[in-house]
């Protein structure tokens, strides 16, 4: 008799353990939901962790106002089907109230503005643990991230002051006012996520599958043509329809799309297996400098 889990079931067991640990150790957890596949996976794992009870914490979506419309439609459907409570933090509202100032220029993005809205929502809800779907394979600053990532009272990350993590023992102790970011799928790779979503037959937003869309190229990345991006005249002239899909889903202003014919999740797995660029390779927000992600994380970015 062999007692063996395949690698996906073992990753699942680890993530469920960590999600339950959050529910047990913290008073007011919240799950950060972006609408991307990683946060869809997180919701799926959270359902498994507490079955047959409902997920015992709300979902928090920071809406930049520049989302793909498909993302919002998928989010609302998912929330209704799992019976979760949804909180929406709006970047547009923060701008309207003068709390945030919109970036200008061709590379303007609301990505940076998300951080303050997120921190404000965490404070408003008195949340002491925010679960996120970040993975260590995504970006080099995340390779050293802990499962339980301690944040000071300003929500900042100090890479030199992270607690060592050993075995399955997670230290979530903190003083009042501090909070934790918790990353249960730290050990998953992009490919693991796709394999698992295929194995579990989880429904996904249409954006991940190949579809026709007007796009243009900027610095080697294909971007979806939309009203939120200021285009240079030559970019405007070069807009054309292509078969594309998203490998990550974020703001329309910074999420690159990829030329693809992948119509099913199995096609995506095949494509990702032989891909020669990282999924964040299409994220213009990471390209601002070599340490763009590390700098944003220190400020409290997700």
């Amino acid at each position: 008799m062999s007692y063996n889990l395949n690698h996906l079931k073992e990753l699942e067991a680890e993530s469920i353990f960590i999600i339950r640990e959050v529910a047990a150790q913290f008073e007011r957890p919240v799950l950060m939901f972006s609408g991307g596949k990683d946060s869809i996976l997180m919701v799926h794992l959270a359902r498994k962790a507490f079955y047959p009870a409902n997920i015992p914490f709300p979902l928090l979506h920071i809406d930049t106002g520049h989302n793909f419309p498909e993302t919002i439609a998928y989010r609302d459907e998912l929330v209704a089907s799992v019976g979760a409570r949804l909180i929406v933090g709006s970047v547009q509202e923060a701008i309207d109230q003068g709390k945030a100032v919109e970036e200008k220029g061709f590379n303007a993005s609301r990505n940076y503005l998300q951080t303050n809205v997120l921190l404000e929502e965490l404070e408003k809800g008195k949340f002491d643990a925010a679960l996120g779907g970040a993975r260590r394979d995504e970006e080099k600053a995340r390779a050293k991230e802990r499962f339980f990532s301690h944040r000071d009272e300003f929500g900042q990350w100090d890479p030199k002051n992270q607690r060592p993590e050993l075995w399955n023992l997670f230290n979530g102790k903190k003083v009042f006012g501090e909070h934790f970011r918790v990353f249960p799928i730290s050990n998953w790779t992009e490919l693991d996520v796709w394999m698992y979503l295929a194995m579990e037959k989880v429904p996904l937003p249409s954006l991940y599958f190949a579809h026709k869309r007007p796009v243009f190229e900027r610095e080697g990345t294909l971007l979806a043509d939309c009203e939120y991006i200021t285009k240079r005249p030559e970019e405007q002239a070069a807009v054309e329809e292509k078969m594309v899909r998203c490998r990550t889903i974020g703001d329309m202003t910074c999420t690159g799309v990829w030329e693809s014919e992948a119509a099913t999740i199995e096609d995506i797995i095949k494509e990702v297996s032989i891909a020669r660029k990282t999924e964040r390779g299409g994220r213009t927000d990471d390209k601002r400098s070599e340490t763009a992600m590390e700098d944003r994380k220190k400020q409290g970015y997700f």
Binding site: R136, K140, A143, K144, P159, K160, Q162, P164
Partner: peptide
């Protein structure tokens, strides 16, 4: 991975690959 490490050319933490 981290800026300090790249500057000093040393690995000061556990990195997961």
């Amino acid at each position: 991975g981290l800026k300090a490490e790249r500057e000093q050319g040393i690995t000061i933490d556990v990195a997961y690959r």
